[in-house]
Design a protein around this nucleic acid. Structure first.
Lengths: 244, 244
DNA sequence: CGGCAACTTGACAATGCTCAACGCGGGTGG
DNA sequence: CCACCCGCGTTGAGCATTGTCAAGTTGCCG
């Protein structure tokens, strides 16, 4: 056990324990670890799909570029995140993946994925994982489409907090967020200037502070309330949730 | 062969021929057909996941509601569309599915999906299908986040046109679009009033007309151009596309 | 013929964008 | 060791796209 798959295992086991052999397999595939510098590509739009990634540490993102140079970040890849193992069914990438901070990731080829696919319990757990990512993508659409900048930013912070907690890389009421305001802007479809103003408003309201890449939440329930955050879309509870 | 899976098969075969047995299986599972009236639920947020759907005819959509009653449509389900067969890995629905027009759909339970999963070629083809749906979801985020109302609406029309063509239910330069302007508004995160104005602007520009549920495209290349539509995200070509 | 849902149009308000300038800090080279 | 420079953050002013509210109109169905 090298422990590199620990954060992924922790996430997957939130839905039910895995057999030791399954954990061993995940761990044994989690090597070697490759290091990516900020802004470095993990995968490039248009390139053939021949690998997927398990994020060990750091922040990466999926994004699309517009002809005019603006970009939309469509997903964050956090420690313990694994790409959809079905990705190989596509011939080429329809978006890019890049490191936002320094990233440690394991590069998995087809053979590694085939070994994962031979374990039914892992296939199910990873299907759950992929479906949660899709649920998050839907929520981002709601976020960008219908929430004010204040709610949007607050909602993103809540989501990151929950996800990082599940991976075991958040503190009690804070987490490392190595993003520039411009990157947050690309995520929330706001201008960098407006992200700045909104951030100060959140600070003024006493909900959170964000300094030197550390995000501190001062009143989590109030933040959830103010940003319309309802964690059910993250599927964190094992039992079925009641209808809205 | 009852032919009900014809549109799905047509889509899947755009990526490579299927074996006759695979097609027979799809067709044999495509029964019975259930009919849903406009606004009727196919699946409700919070309910247990025990079925998925193959759309035979008509328009359905996935959506989420906000506490204030507004809604965001996160995907269209068109003739020939099939839900992700992995959906059963979730305990409950994180969004609702409802009919927009009268819909004919096949309801598939776990057993039917298990039979599909025993055919590797189908598993691959359906993985491709599901990944395209995710790519579309990413594009919707770009659309809502970064495009003007004019581009947004044009882009949606282009996408629907391409998808309906692939399923074989579009005419040369037009297709049936049984949506109200309010429903388009819920899709594009615009107000109904603004959808109306934008629609008239598209008409005035001579790009398209939309009357009595029929959408006619007068100049498709110009429409693509004006709305920044680049069909690569739909993965329609079998060969790898060049980088942007 | 009546009624209701969808569509249309106008006036006004507001959220968020653009442009522009300035502050701050860390890294680099002279 | 100091000075410059560049990326990032901050702030202000004006603007524009889009939302809201409200009043009509059209058209379909009963």
């Amino acid at each position: 056990m090298n422990g590199r798959a620990e954060r992924l295992i922790r996430r997957l086991e939130s839905q039910g324990a895995l057999a030791p052999e399954d954990k061993w397999l995940l761990d044994s595939l989690a090597s070697p670890v490759r290091r990516f510098e900020p802004r470095e590509y993990l995968a490039k739009q248009g390139s053939p799909v021949d690998r997927i990634f398990l994020i060990i540490d750091g922040y990466a993102c999926r994004y699309r570029l517009l002809p005019d140079g603006r970009r939309q970040i469509t997903a964050f890849m956090l420690p313990g995140d694994l790409c959809d193992i079905r990705t190989f069914a596509l011939s080429h990438m329809d978006h890019s993946i890049a490191a936002l901070s320094t990233v440690e990731a394991v590069v998995l080829g087809v053979e590694a994925v085939q070994r994962l696919q031979m374990r039914p319990a892992l296939v199910t757990a990873l299907a759950w994982n992929a479906l949660v990512q899709q649920s998050i993508a839907r929520e981002w659409l709601v976020n960008v489409g219908h929430r004010t900048s204040f709610e949007r930013l607050g909602h993103l912070v809540c989501e990151l907090f929950e996800r990082l907690q599940l991976a075991g890389v958040a503190q009690d009421n804070s987490f490392r967020l190595p993003l520039t305001q411009a990157e947050i802007a690309d995520t929330l479809a706001l201008s960098p200037v407006h992200v700045n103003r909104t951030l100060m408003e959140l600070r003024r309201t006493g909900l959170l502070t964000f300094q030197s890449r550390q995000l501190v939440i001062h009143d989590y329930p109030a933040l959830c309330q103010a940003s319309g955050f309802d964690r059910r879309y993250l599927h964190l509870d094992r039992s079925a949730a009641a209808a809205a």
